[in-house]
Amino acid sequence: MNQGTHPEGPLAEVLDDVAGAVGAEVTLLGRLPGGVNGGATRVQLAGSAAAVLKAVPRAHPNHLDETLRAQRVVEHMRRRGYPTPAWLGVGATATHVWQLMDFVDAAAASELTPSLVEQLMEIIELQAGQASEPYDHWSYAWRVATAQDPASTGLDLNETREQSRLRRSMARLPGYSSEVSDLVERLRLVCADAPPPRDAPDMVHADLATPSNILVRDGAVVAVVDVGNAGSGTRAIDLTNLVWYTFRDPLLDDVRRRLWTRILDLVGLDGAAVLTAAHVLHMLEIPVRDGRHDVVPGVVKRGHRALDELNALRWSRA
């Protein structure tokens, strides 16, 4: 993408909508690395600094409302010192939903190191008690892990269409293979007696373990991005996502032990089992859905390893 070009089609409509919303001409500067889910483009606002534009096709009628929810989470958390860039605007065309945010001069992490995980654990503590939107990742994780029918839980549900779709997709996982079925059965058993969560007091990022969502300068985390799925729950959800990532590198074994300890302190053994099971099921659903059959055995192996470690912690605390 060349600087100064003005594309045609849907992207041109997005740029025109952004310009109208912010009251300034918008010039494309180029695609930024990362952006696995939607892509990010660096733009220049006339008379102002550079910014980052993310635009994705409208997925459903409530897509804009969900993006506005994320914007409110950003505004709330920034007032409390959370290191996520300010959002300058949100809007939608007939075909796309967009968000415009401050540009942060830092590089996306290529991988999570022990130092970065430690820094993220400190950042996650800023989420404590900061739930501001009724979008409960905690209750959702419990429904996923226990395979409870939402109609029978008696909980106040506020699921997105994507969450409902994922739950239905995960319910079909046992039919994929006997190995997957065995792991799913083990996950269900470990969560069988776990009670539903009583509250959701914390802000939850929900994708903090993806390295490209961590912006780093000189070895320090300076920003976390991609908060589009942020909501409420327990911050142990983000810690559990980090646990899953740490299995990729033996150098992260020590920091994983500290993660497990913090998770257990926050939600106890039943809660840790629920969050672990829900995350493993999500990690299984992705390659099964995408037909990446070569990836599935590795996910199954890592899922059993996570449960083995959790069981060892259960016995050590008994």
Rank of each mutant, 00 (worst) to 15 (best):
G233D: 01
V299W: 02
H63K: 05
V43L: 07
V26L: 11
A312F: 01
L208T: 01
H304S: 04
D294I: 10
R167P: 03
H137P: 02
A223D: 10
L275H: 05
L189K: 12
G291Y: 02
D182G: 15
P250R: 07
E133C: 05
L242P: 03
G271L: 01
V117R: 00
A318M: 14
G175Y: 13
E111N: 12
G4E: 14
A108K: 10
L215S: 06
T113P: 09
G4W: 12
A192V: 15
R168D: 13
H76E: 13
P250G: 04
A51N: 08
E8C: 08
D226P: 00
S212F: 07
P83R: 11
A230P: 01
G228R: 01
S232F: 03
A200V: 02
R161I: 05
D308M: 00
R314G: 07
A306C: 04
D253A: 14
G20E: 12
Q119E: 08
D202T: 07
I124H: 03
A278H: 04
L116P: 06
Y245K: 09
D270W: 09
G39L: 04
G219C: 12
Q71F: 14
P195M: 15
L29F: 05
E8R: 09
V300L: 00
L252K: 00
D202G: 10
N2M: 09
L28T: 13
L313S: 11
N37I: 09
N158P: 01
R305A: 14
E162S: 12
L264S: 09
V280M: 05
V144L: 09
C191V: 10
V184A: 03
H279W: 07
K301L: 09
G91V: 15
V22T: 13
H96D: 14
